[in-house]
């Protein structure tokens, strides 16, 4: 039934589109309109309208859930379950609740999430850049083999290491219920970031290295003084991407932080809040308020630095972009 109605809608749109073009065509053939008007009316304008209509429809589909969440977060009382889009009156009661509630402690979760994300992204990017430099600018035997092996580890499905890592962190390192498993492994760098930064090191002219060495720098000095400052843009992009990823992650905190409330991150707090919504007596408007609070940093960061976000999305694939 629904499929039929949707189909009907598209058929109607198509009929309107082709009907319009046909009508223009007929008018043109009869000599009622001129060549230039025909091209404009019969070709350019309907195509424009169709293209922008599709794009606007998808934009609405993308924005509407966010808008709904924001508007719901301002509702209170019975209004939450009303089938209206806009709240009767904009109340801040949900935001006051999620930001000040002691049990939920969203502010602490927020600070925790950001503090866990900083070290792995900053240090991890630097260690990855180090490896990327060694694998692209230094000459030693077996360099490409090492790169191939490292690249191959990227293809190993994460599900294999999920449980043994958990056991190792629990039994050998004794890190369970502390944030260390979220921080320490990331600081050693990651192959994905290394692969991406290697691409940008490879694009750097070799003469720069030579010039640095003539000026008395060691290879390590070349990396620190020449290569790193020149590729600051991709490094920054990877840091932003990594930071956003670490901030948004909730599976690792769920696995390793468990129920230790003092270490909880904001995503984990929201997940716990949502999954125990009924028993804790919360309603969806409060969850939405918490979600909006959690989304703000990501979206602000994205709009401030969308060039880095979207640019690195392209080059991370290693394809020409």
């Amino acid at each position: 039934m629904i499929l039929f109605k949707i189909l009907l809608f598209f058929v109607a749109v198509a009929a309107l589109y082709f009907g319009w073009r046909l009508a223009c065509n007929v008018l043109f053939k009869k000599g009622k309109i001129k060549d230039t008007t025909y091209r404009l009316l019969g070709n350019t304008i309907p195509l424009y309208v169709l293209e922008y209509a599709v794009l606007l429809l998808i934009t609405v589909c993308i924005i509407l859930p966010f808008m709904y969440a924001v508007l719901l977060s301002f509702k209170e009382g019975k209004d939450v379950y009303a089938a209206t889009l806009f709240p009767k009156k904009f109340s801040m009661v949900n935001y006051r609740y999620v930001l000040t509630d002691d049990y939920l402690d969203l502010i602490r979760g927020f600070i925790n999430a950001i503090s866990y994300a900083i070290l792995p992204t900053v240090v991890g990017c630097l260690t990855s850049a180090m490896a990327a430099f060694a694998l692209s600018r230094l000459n030693f035997k077996g360099r490409d083999k090492i790169f191939a092996v490292m690249f191959a580890t990227m293809c190993i499905p994460g599900v294999i290491t999920l449980i043994p890592s958990y056991i190792m962190f629990a039994r050998i390192y004794n890190w369970i219920n502390t944030p260390l498993p979220l921080i320490i492994p990331g600081m050693f760098g990651s192959v994905g970031v290394m692969f991406f930064l290697r691409q940008s090191f490879l694009q750097m002219p070799k003469e720069l290295d030579e010039a640095g060495i003539l000026d008395g720098l060691s290879k390590g000095g070349v990396f620190l003084r020449i290569a790193l400052p020149l590729t600051w843009a991709p490094v920054l992009a990877q840091m932003l991407l990594g930071f956003n990823g670490a901030y948004n992650d909730f599976m690792m905190p769920l696995l390793y932080l468990g129920s230790e409330k003092q270490w909880s991150t904001i995503q984990l707090s929201i997940y716990n809040m949502y999954s125990s919504m009924q028993s804790a007596g919360n309603n969806m408007a409060q969850v939405m308020a918490a979600c909006v609070v959690a989304l703000i940093p990501s979206i602000v960061l994205f709009f401030l630095a969308q060039k880095y976000f979207m640019g690195s999305g392209i080059s991370a694939s290693g394809l020409k972009g």
Partner: peptide
């Protein structure tokens, strides 16, 4: 840029939003 927004958003938040979108009553 608009189409890319959901990509940078946290899975927990978007899932909560969609859990409400899909709620069978409201």
């Amino acid at each position: 840029v608009i189409f890319y927004i959901p990509v940078v958003c946290s899975v927990v938040a978007t899932s909560c939003i969609w859990a409400w979108m899909y709620n069978d009553v409201y």
